[in-house]
């Protein structure tokens, strides 16, 4: 059977992804009030966690991690988490429920890559807001906010990018469930609960009870927040830091392949809604 149109060349593919990224970014930045709302929401969420830990440190200042380091950790963990907030589950869930997924699948670009581009757009937009919030920390904690060394900062950047690819991989694997449930909420909430618990968002993993710490070691979630932030803080350096980067890379590749496999299975049983 003759295909609807010949497959795109590599250059055409790149151009398509570039156009998609620009369009998604324009969409994100087009509503200025949203930007302010997002900023406020982020500030409230970060402030609450920090205030709770402030109380803990007020009652007992003698902890493994000094209070100023703890506040910087929480602020950076919050900023990284926000930069990695992808709307993928809701976006795909909504399109499956309304049947619009059919038009996405008919497009001549790879669905998984197109979702990755949209996620990069989410990441750039959220990352810009996170940077603003994180920068505000300089007014409170001064030079404590700086990375432990220039090399730690460079490693942090690499780890952050890898952490982003890990969270995208996790999200894409989870979102395959939406092809069976026809909704994105449950999928989002499940991923979010695991992310919140095992990523080190609300506290450094060093404070986790042994059982929880062991579970965390076997899951990819710690590589989305704890790993980049611990590298930034200088808690992990040298070969240990490189090993963590390798683990992040391993999870990225593994999750990408699992996502591709699961999508192939999900599409075989998909019933397009609507009409």
């Amino acid at each position: 059977m003759r295909p609807l149109q010949p497959p795109l060349t590599f250059t055409q593919n790149l151009e398509s992804y570039r156009s998609l990224l620009v369009r998604c970014l324009k969409g994100s930045f087009s509503y200025k009030s949203t930007t302010i709302n997002n900023l406020l929401t982020t500030l409230v969420a970060y402030a609450i966690t920090i205030m709770i830990w402030h109380q803990v440190y007020q009652q007992n200042p003698n902890h493994v991690i000094p209070s100023t380091q703890m506040y910087v950790y929480l602020l950076l963990a919050g900023a990284v988490n926000y930069a990695m907030s992808l709307g993928m589950e809701f976006r795909i869930g909504q399109r499956i429920r309304t049947g619009l997924i059919a038009t996405d699948l008919l497009k001549p670009i790879d669905f998984q890559m197109a979702q990755a581009i949209q996620s990069i757009s989410d990441g750039l937009f959220n990352g810009a807001l996170s940077f603003v919030v994180f920068s505000l920390g300089f007014f409170l904690f001064g030079t404590q906010m700086l990375p432990s060394s220039p090399s730690a900062f460079l490693l942090f950047l690499v780890s952050f990018v890898l952490g982003f690819t890990v969270i995208y991989g996790i999200g894409f694997v989870f979102v395959q469930g939406a092809f069976y449930t026809y909704s994105g909420y449950g999928i989002f909430a499940a991923r979010n609960a695991l992310q919140f618990t095992f990523s080190g968002f609300s506290a450094p993993l060093d404070y986790y009870p042994p059982l929880l710490r062991t579970i965390t070691d076997y899951l990819p979630f710690r590589h989305t927040i704890y790993t980049p932030v611990a590298i930034y803080m200088g808690w992990v350096t040298g070969p240990a830091a490189y090993l963590l980067l390798l683990q992040q890379l391993g999870w990225t590749v593994g999750l990408f392949l699992v996502g591709k496999f699961l999508m192939g299975r999900a599409l075989k049983q998909l019933e397009v809604q609507g009409g």
Binding site: I52, W53, V56, Q59, N60, H63, A189, A190, N192, A193, L194, F196, T197, S202, A203, Y207, Y208, P209, L212
Partner: peptide, 18 residues
């Protein structure tokens, strides 16, 4: 339920310190 439990895990972690 998982989301509520994950919040409880945070509480658990906090109470290991105080």
């Amino acid at each position: 339920c998982m989301l509520q439990l994950s919040a409880l895990v945070s509480l658990w972690v906090i109470f290991t310190q105080t």
